[in-house]
Design a protein around this nucleic acid. Structure first.
Lengths: 211, 211
DNA sequence: GTCTATACCCTGATAGAC
DNA sequence: GTCTATCAGGGTATAGAC
């Protein structure tokens, strides 16, 4: 049941996601967000009190949604290495559904989390928390080597975010013929990263049970 | 042989690195850069024509220096897996010498390379180019598994940059007691990442010859 | 809820004296 | 080479009519 009253703020949020991802908080222009959302600028301030409030709302929504997906994997069934496979593919899928996510994630890390209020930080932290639970489960039953959880966390997630965020630069490099980067679809990247991660952290690499 | 004429622009560049890393191009304030460099703002504009020119100069210098270090490894001696170990440690070392680097790198990727002129892009590209040469050498002599070079590149470098850039957020998480992240020094991170990368990409993991 | 017009501040950049 | 003073433009935010 569509609530028409919701559609305007949602359009604003979608436009804001695009703008903040492309230019960062300081570089984003409220005028551009309003124009892209096809609403009047005063309307934007009517729904969101300020540029900051708009940004905070956006961050909270997106980090909460991301955390939910990872938590679902951790608390679901399956062997630990398979769960890690699923973390990789789910994260990539989440980014496909939220193209603005990698850029905003990178910027927020660079910013030192300056725009993350407690609730948002809590959502963000629940991602590594869920991931650590998978690692511990795998170490306990011998499916995973015992490794430092932070190392594993960054080894798994950083490549995905970075690779998908770097798409525009790769296109620029290719367009200027500075280097010949072969074709590599996002799905292929995911599969090969799953493979690398399994070799890096699974106790028995040959135990492949990918669907 | 100190050339006093150089010291002022260098101080400005150092201050700019700090400011741009902390706030990004749009968020950076020329006034703050000048104050931090202890020079008058007019002086800054005397040496650098504009905020943009200052940023470009900084980017070109830092990416060129980073590329040099990686190229030296690729063209140096040793087995391919050992070279990859060295890429990991050298990159971490480079960041220790240039603390502002991870944030600027992340922001530039998020920006889609909007501030990278041809020369800077060329320097940036020479990093993966050197890395790919190592991979090819290793695949040719059987020391490395044949893998997609882009996957390996991002699997190796993204975790380092991301992990070191995320230091401030980790401190924030710890300070707010949202999660208990154990102690992990940068050196430990490097060693464990080297280990993970070797397992992921070396043909024979047991062939360890780390100094 | 929607729009126009505008206040007001911030910031990049420069003119011009020394 | 160095500094003070200032301008011009652009950007967030709001007042107030409808």
């Amino acid at each position: 049941m569509a609530r028409p009253a919701r559609v305007t703020p949602d359009r604003i949020l979608a436009a804001a996601a695009f703008e903040f991802a492309a230019h960062g908080f300081a570089g984003a222009r409220v005028d551009r967000i309003a124009r892209r959302a096809r609403v009047n600028k005063a309307m934007l301030y009517y729904y969101f009190r300020s540029k900051q409030a708009l940004y905070h709302t956006l961050l909270r929504a997106v980090f909460t949604r991301a955390a939910e997906r990872i938590e679902a994997i951790a608390s679901g069934g399956g062997a630990a290495p398979d769960k890690i496979d699923r973390v990789v593919s789910t994260f990539a899928e989440f980014i496909r559904d939220h193209e603005f996510f990698p850029a905003i994630m990178l910027r927020e890390v660079a910013e030192g989390g300056a725009h993350l209020d407690r609730q948002t930080l809590r959502a963000l932290v629940s991602v590594p928390r869920a991931f650590f639970a998978i690692l511990q489960e795998g170490a306990a039953d011998g499916a995973l080597r015992p490794v430092n959880p932070l190392v594993a966390y960054f080894a798994v997630l950083a490549p995905i975010v970075f690779y998908l965020a770097a798409g525009p630069i790769r296109r620029e490099v290719t367009a200027r013929r500075l280097m010949n980067l072969g074709a590599l679809s996002a799905d292929d990247f995911v599969r090969q990263l799953q493979d690398a991660v399994r070799r890096a952290f699974a106790q028995d690499v040959s135990a492949r049970t990918r669907p």
